[in-house]
Write a protein that binds this DNA or RNA. Structure first.
Lengths: 338, 338
DNA sequence: TTTACCCGTTTAATCGTTTAACTAATTATC
DNA sequence: GATAATTAGTTAAACGATTAAACGGGTAAA
C-alpha cells in the first residue's frame, strides 16, 4: 500500500492536518514543524493521492477535449494536431487532457461524454464544428467552455480562431509584391467562415494595391476544398481566362489539385503560373516545386485554447473574448517574381 | 451542486448502499426495488462521481502513456500516431489516457511523471525507447506496464512491436517477384533493432530465392535513417556498383533521399531502378512516382498496446508476451517488373 | 489580576462512493 | 415446530485528503 498522509503524520508526530497545511504552503505552521514534516515527507517519498484530493476539493485537474469522430479520424491530421497542442501545453501544468469524441450526427438521444456526466473535468475545450444539439445540452452544465477553430452562433465563451483574413492578405500581398496582377482565387464553399475570411483577405489586398477585382477568376462554388475540386476549379478558370499569372488557393489540398491541372496542361510552375496555398500541410515540401503557403499553426491553436481554458477556470469568469492565432507566410518555389 | 447517491437514496426511500448495489448490478436486490431505484436515477439524471469511486475503489480508470519529449515533438508524427491509436481504442472503453513526456536525457535526479507519484493511473504504456534509469525507477512500482515499439533489455512485460522481419521479407519478395536480382539494401544504424530486423527479412528473402547475398550493395552505416543519409548512401552504392536494378530502403525518408539521388543522376524511376521504402508516410503518395512501401500501422500499434494493457490490468497478471503487428505491402509506381 | 488576542496545532466533519458485516424476515430442512 | 439457510436490505466504516472550528498556551493590554 502506498504512503498516505497518516503515515507521514505518525512519523512526524503531528496531526494529518498539519501535514496537509505544510504541503499546501500554509504559513500558519512554524518553520520548525514545517522542516520536520518536510523531512519525513522526503524520507517516506510521500505524494498526496490525486483521487482523495479530487474528491474533497471538488476539482479534478482534468480538462476535456471534445471533437466529432470524423474530425478525429480524418486523414489530414488537423484537429489531432490541435489536440496535441493542447496536450503539450497541459504537460507544462498540473492538468491532464481527457479526450472524447461525439458522433457528428449527435442528437438529443445521444448521451453526453462520460467525463461530463461523471464530473471528471474542470473545463472543456471544443474543437471544430459540433452539432447544435450538443451545444445546447452542454450549456446546461456550469462548465467553463472554450472553442477552438469554431465559433458557435450565440457565442458566450472564449474562442480561438485562425487569423484567416490576415492569411488571405499575406498570401495575396506576396503575389502582388512579386508583380502579379491577374491573381485567381480558388476556394470551396463560401459559406464556410474560414474560406469566406480568406477571400476577404484576398479582396482587401487587391483593394490596397488598387487592383481591379475580377469575379471571373474567382472560384467559390466547390462544395468541399479537396484536391479533385481544386483540379476541376482550375480547369474551369483557366480554360476561360488566358492571362492569369498567379493563383491563391484557399488551402493546400486545392492548390495541389491546381498544380496537377496546370502540369497536365503544359503550364510550368512557377514560370508560367505562380501558386500559393493555405495550411502548410506536410506534403508541401515534397511537391515539385515545393508549395508556397500560409502556415496555420495547428499546434499553437491547441496550446492557446488550453491556456485560455486554464485561465478561465482560475478566474471563474467566462469572458467571451476572441483570440486570433497569427499565421505565417512561407515562401517556397511555387511562386516567382515577374 | 450535482446529484449524489444520497439524493437518489432519499427520493427512492432506500439506503445509499442499495442504490450502489443497484448501480453495480448486484443481484441481491429485488427486481421491484431495482426498478424503483432505476426510475429515480433516471428522474434525477444521476451519475456516480468518478472522484469518489476512484478513491474508494483504489483504481482510477486512467492509463498513462509515456514517451520522451523528442519522440513527442519530432516532425514525423510516428509516436503521436501511436498515441492517437491508444486514445482511439480507449474511447471504446471506460478508460482515459493520460499523456506524459520525460526528457530523453532522463536520469535519477529527475522525478517520475506526476501521474505515477499521485497514483492516478492503473497502468502505463511506454512508447519508444526510454532511458534505462527511467525503467529501473519504474519497476519499483507495482504498476502494470506495456511497451510499444520498444523492447527493453530484461523484458518482463508485454511488448507490441512492428513485424519488421516480415516487412523486410515482403518488400524484398516483391522486388524478387518483379524479376529483380541485384537488390540494394539501404539502411541506417544496424544496431537499431528494427533496422536489423528489416535487413534480416531482406537476407531471408534472398536466401529463399537462392539469390547470392552481395555485401557491396548493402549499406548499413548511416547514423540516422533520414533523407540526407539516404541520398549519401545511394551515392556511395551507385557509384561503385553499376548494375543494381532495385533498392529496398529501410524507411521512406531514406527512400526519398535515394530517389533524389537517382533523379539527380539521370536515372529514371522505375524504368532504370525500382525502389521500395518502409513506413508508408503520408508524403509517399505525392512523390513522383508514388513510392511503393511497407505500411506500418502506427495507429494499430497504439490500439493494440492499449488492448493488452487493459487485459493485463483486468487479469492482474503480467505475462511477458510479444505481439507483432502485421505490416502490409503497398505497391505504387516506384517498382516495376523487369 | 483579569481579559483579550494571537499563534500554532489538533479535532472532527466532509467530499461521494463501495462493501463487509449485520439484521430481520422469509423459506427450507429435518 | 425448532433450527438452519436464504433473501433483501441497512448500518457504518473506509478510501485519503482538506479545512472550518476548537483549543490551549503565551503575551500584551486594561
Amino acid at each position: 500500500m502506498a504512503v498516505t498522509i497518516k503515515d507521514v503524520a505518525l512519523k512526524a508526530k503531528v496531526s494529518t492536518a498539519t501535514v496537509s497545511l505544510v504541503i499546501n504552503g500554509n504559513n500558519r505552521i512554524s518553520p520548525e514543524t514545517k522542516r520536520k514534516v518536510l523531512k519525513v515527507i522526503k524520507e517516506l517519498d510521500y505524494h498526496p493521492s490525486k483521487s482523495a484530493r479530487d474528491l474533497v476539493s471538488q476539482k479534478t485537474g482534468n480538462i476535456g477535449f471534445l471533437l466529432t469522430d470524423d474530425h478525429f479520424l480524418r486523414t489530414e491530421p488537423f484537429y489531432t494536431r490541435i489536440f496535441l497542442g493542447s496536450e503539450f501545453e497541459a504537460g507544462n501544468t498540473n492538468y491532464y487532457i481527457l479526450l472524447a469524441t461525439v458522433p457528428s450526427t449527435y442528437n438529443n438521444n445521444n448521451s453526453l461524454p462520460r467525463f461530463i456526466l461523471e464530473r471528471s473535468i474542470d473545463g472543456l475545450i471544443v474543437a471544430g464544428k459540433v452539432p447544435e444539439e450538443l451545444l445546447s445540452k452542454l450549456s446546461e452544465y456550469k462548465l467553463p467552455l472554450t472553442f477552438v477553430d469554431y465559433k458557435p452562433e450565440r457565442q458566450k465563451y472564449p474562442v480561438v480562431l485562425i487569423d484567416n483574413i490576415h492569411g488571405g492578405l499575406l498570401a495575396t500581398n506576396h503575389l502582388i509584391e512579386y508583380g502579379h496582377k491577374k491573381i485567381a482565387f480558388i476556394g470551396g464553399d463560401i459559406s464556410h467562415p474560414s474560406i469566406r475570411d480568406r477571400l476577404t483577405g484576398y479582396t482587401r489586398a487587391l483593394d490596397n494595391a488598387g487592383i481591379n477585382f475580377n469575379k471571373n477568376i474567382i472560384h467559390t462554388i466547390s462544395p468541399y476544398p479537396d484536391r479533385q475540386n481544386g483540379y476541376d476549379a482550375a480547369k474551369s478558370i483557366f480554360t476561360k481566362n488566358k492571362n492569369i499569372t498567379a493563383v491563391f488557393a484557399c488551402n493546400d489540398a486545392m492548390a495541389i489539385g491546381v498544380m496537377h491541372y496546370l502540369k497536365d496542361n503544359g503550364y510550368s510552375i512557377p514560370d508560367d503560373v505562380s501558386i500559393i496555398g493555405f495550411d502548410d500541410v506536410e506534403a508541401d515540401l515534397l511537391l515539385d516545386p515545393p508549395l508556397s503557403t500560409i502556415r496555420v499553426p495547428k499546434f499553437d491553436l491547441g496550446a492557446e485554447a488550453f491556456k485560455i481554458m486554464k485561465e478561465s477556470i482560475q478566474n471563474k469568469e467566462t469572458k467571451s473574448k476572441i483570440v486570433l492565432v497569427p499565421v505565417e507566410l512561407i515562401i517556397r518555389k511555387s511562386t516567382r517574381k515577374i
